[in-house]
Write a protein that binds this DNA or RNA. Structure first.
Length: 486
DNA sequence: TCTGGGGTCCTTAACCGT
DNA sequence: TCTGACGGTTAAGGACCC
C-alpha cells in the first residue's frame, strides 16, 4: 500500500537558540547556548555556531562552556518560545485541521486531510511556501520533511536540516533507510542502540534483515515488532490533533545535595503545592500520587500511591507525598525531588466535592482526609535558615556553595531586594529602554540595549540594585516593537 | 564540575478475584 | 474443595523524546 507523501513534519532549526539570536541582534552569527546556568545545568539547545565546537543538547552546561568558552550562555525564555510556537502552529492549522504538535518546535500535519495537497508535487509546493511564510513571519527557519508516514516524514526533516526540505518518494523508502544508522529511527536511543550494536546490527538495513522474531527476542514484544515495521518503512499511525494529558509533574534538582530530613520534607511539600497548581490550571484532578527521588549517586526511585478517587486538593496531595517520602531512605543525600499526579480525570470542583463527601460517608481515609490534615505550614514555606540544613555529613561534597539554596534565586521578596539577574533575561531601564542581561557578578549587572529588528546595541553596566533597572517581558520577534528585518 | 524538566510508553512482578 | 488459567489493577523501573 503506497500512499502519497502528504504527511508533513516541521522542525524548527535550533529553535530556542535561533529565537534568542532573532531577538538579540548582537548574537547573530555567534555561538549561543540555551540551558540551565546553575552548577548542574544542561544544554537545551545550541546554535549551529556553537555546535561546531561540539556543544549539543543534553550536555552538562559546564562542559559546554569548556568547549565553547566564548559562547553566550542564556537561560530559556519559554514565554517567548511559546508565542513564536503559537504563531507557527497557527500557520500549520491553516493548512489542515489535522495538526499534531510534538513540542514547541515540532509538529506533524496531514496535508491530505486538509485538502492542501494530494500528491508529491502539491506537497512539495506547500512545504516550500510554508518555510518561506515561517521565515517571513518569525525570522526563523524551519526544516520540512514530507513522506507517506509520520516516521518517514520525521526522518526526512532530520535529513533536511538545517533550513531545508526533503520529500521521500513512495517506493524509495527502503533503499533510503537501509544505510542509515539504527539511531535514526525514533525509539532507538542509547540503550537499544547499544543492545543492537552488540548483536552486530548498526544500520536500518541490517535491522530489516534480522527479522521480526529475532528483534522481538532481543528488545521485547512491542518494541521489536515496531522496530521491524519501521525498518521496512511501514508506519500507519495517524496524525492526531488532540491528545489528552496523562500526568502532571514537577521536579527540582538542587544545586547542592540535600541531607537534612526536615528540609527534604519541606521541599516535597512545596513541590506538591506546585504540582497541584499546575494540575488545577489544566482543569484536571488525579488519582495516583508519585514521589520521585534522585539520590546523590544519581540512582532514581519512585514511590506511588493510588487514592480511592481523584483529587486536586493540595492537602491531600501533600499528605500522600509526605507518606511516600517516609518510606524512602535519603541518607547520603538527595539531588532531585519530584511530585507528580497521574490517572487524570477532568472532574469539576462540584464532582470532586461530591466524591469527597461520598468517601467520608464511606469512612475512606484515602480521599476524605483533608479534615485530619496536619499541614504544619500553609502554602508558605518554612525555610530552614541558609546553611543550617547543609551542615555537612562527614565526607561532604566539594560543593560548599551555601549562598544559593536549591532552585531559588537568592532574592528576598521582602525588604532590601537584592535581585538576581539571570543571563539572557529581559529587562527595562528607565533611561535606556529595553535590553537583556549579558552577565552579572560582584554587585554589577551588564545589560545590552537592543531589540528584535534593531542594529546590535551597546552594553552598559549597572549596580545590581540600580532602581532604574527592572525585569520585563520579552518583546515579540515581530510586530510593533520588533520586526524581522532591520 | 558530570548528567534538567516535562512528558510518554512499555515491561515486569505482585496481588486480587473469578 | 483445591488448583490453575486468566484478566485487571497497582507499583516500580527503564527507555525514550524534545
Amino acid at each position: 500500500m503506497r500512499s502519497a507523501p502528504t504527511i508533513l513534519h516541521l522542525d524548527m532549526d535550533a529553535f530556542y537558540a535561533s529565537a534568542e539570536q532573532a531577538s538579540k541582534p548582537s548574537l547573530r552569527g555567534k555561538a549561543v547556548i540555551v540551558g540551565g546556568l546553575g552548577p548542574r545545568g544542561v544544554v537545551a539547545t545550541a546554535s549551529y555556531e556553537a555546535r561546531r565546537f561540539g556543544v549539543h543538547s543534553a550536555m552538562p552546561m559546564a562542559q559546554a562552556r569548556r568547549l565553547c568558552p566564548n559562547g553566550a550562555c542564556l537561560i530559556p525564555r519559554f514565554t517567548l518560545y511559546r508565542e513564536v510556537s503559537e504563531l507557527v502552529m497557527g500557520m500549520l492549522r491553516a493548512l489542515s485541521p489535522l495538526v499534531e504538535p510534538l513540542s514547541l518546535d515540532e509538529a506533524f500535519v496531514d496535508l491530505e486531510a486538509g485538502g492542501a495537497a494530494f500528491d508529491a508535487a502539491g506537497a512539495r509546493a506547500v512545504g516550500e511556501r510554508l518555510r518561506a511564510d515561517i521565515t517571513a513571519a518569525t525570522g526563523l527557519s524551519g526544516s520540512v520533511g514530507l513522506a507517506g508516514s509520520k516516521m518517514l516524514a520525521k526522518v526526512a526533516s532530520e535529513e533536511a536540516k538545517p533550513d531545508g526540505l526533503l520529500l521521500i518518494e513512495p517506493g524509495t523508502e527502503r533503499e533510503l533507510l537501509a544505510p542509515m544508522s539504527v539511531r535514526t529511527l525514533p525509539g532507538v536511543g542509547p540503550a537499544t542502540g547499544e543492545h543492537l550494536r552488540r548483536a552486530g546490527i548498526t544500520t536500518v538495513g541490517e535491522l530489516a534483515e534480522a527479522g521480526e522474531d529475532e528483534l522481538v527476542r532481543m528488545v521485547g514484544k512491542a518494541h521489536g515488532a515496531g522496530l521491524y515495521r519501521m525498518a521496512l518503512g511501514l508506519d500507519d499511525r495517524p496524525v492526531v490533533a488532540e491528545r489528552d494529558a496523562k500526568s502532571v509533574s514537577v521536579e527540582d534538582t538542587f544545586d547542592v545535595d540535600l541531607h537534612d530530613r526536615v528540609r527534604i520534607r519541606n521541599e516535597v511539600q512545596r513541590l506538591a503545592d506546585r504540582c497541584v497548581g499546575r494540575l488545577r490550571a489544566s482543569g484536571h484532578s488525579g488519582r495516583t500520587i508519585v514521589l520521585k527521588v534522585r539520590r546523590y549517586d544519581f540512582s532514581t526511585l519512585t514511590r506511588s500511591e493510588t487514592l480511592r478517587g481523584p483529587t486536586d486538593d493540595p492537602a491531600v496531595v501533600r499528605e500522600a507525598a509526605a507518606r511516600l517520602l517516609e518510606g524512602v531512605d535519603t541518607t547520603g543525600g538527595v539531588r532531585l525531588l519530584g511530585v507528580g499526579v497521574t490517572g487524570l480525570a477532568d472532574y469539576t470542583q462540584e464532582d470532586l466535592f461530591a466524591q469527597v463527601r461520598a468517601a467520608e460517608a464511606d469512612g475512606d481515609p484515602g480521599v476524605a482526609q483533608e479534615s485530619g490534615t496536619v499541614a504544619p505550614d500553609g502554602a508558605e514555606r518554612v525555610d530552614v535558615p541558609s546553611g543550617a540544613g547543609e551542615v555537612e555529613a562527614p565526607g561532604g561534597a566539594a560543593g560548599a556553595v551555601g549562598s544559593v539554596e536549591g532552585g531559588g534565586a537568592p532574592g528576598d521578596p521582602g525588604g532590601g531586594v537584592v535581585r538576581y539577574w539571570a543571563a539572557g533575561s529581559d529587562v527595562r531601564h528607565a533611561v535606556y529602554g529595553p535590553g537583556w542581561v549579558q552577565g552579572s557578578g560582584v554587585g554589577r549587572v551588564t545589560v545590552r540595549f537592543e531589540r528584535p529588528g534593531s542594529a546590535p546595541g551597546r552594553a552598559r553596566t549597572f549596580r545590581v540594585d540600580d532602581p532604574e533597572l527592572e525585569p520585563s517581558d520579552p518583546l515579540p520577534l515581530v510586530g510593533p516593537a520588533g520586526g524581522v528585518s532591520a
